[in-house]
């Protein structure tokens, strides 16, 4: 770093940020690759049903297929909005 650089405001460690973002997106995309084709549609329909009763964000519904040994588990999690 040169003398003049001391006066410049430097961005934070962006490499670290890149790595964190990539670890998340890569894990997500690898998961998506291994998932059954019906999952996105299932998720959308579930969201519609839930929204009849509670107003939740699209992100609030998580549908995942997890493997536990030879068994496959369909895990559904819905985050409800905070009560005012």
């Amino acid at each position: 770093m040169g003398l003049f650089d001391l006066f410049k405001s430097r961005p934070k460690n962006t490499a670290k940020l890149a790595k964190e973002r990539l670890l998340i997106i890569v894990a997500q995309e690898r998961g998506a690759e291994a998932m059954p084709d019906y999952l996105p549609l299932l998720k959308r329909e579930l969201l519609e049903v839930i929204r009849k009763y509670v107003n939740v964000d699209p992100d609030a519904v998580q549908v995942n297929v997890e493997r536990e040994g030879s068994q496959e588990v369909l895990a559904l999690s819905v985050t409800l909005p905070e009560k005012d």
Partner: peptide, 17 residues
Amino acid sequence: RVERGDMMSVGDVEEIL
């Protein structure tokens, strides 16, 4: 640039992939 934290390192890329 890796040392300055502007570029991912060899280890970072290996870990991600």
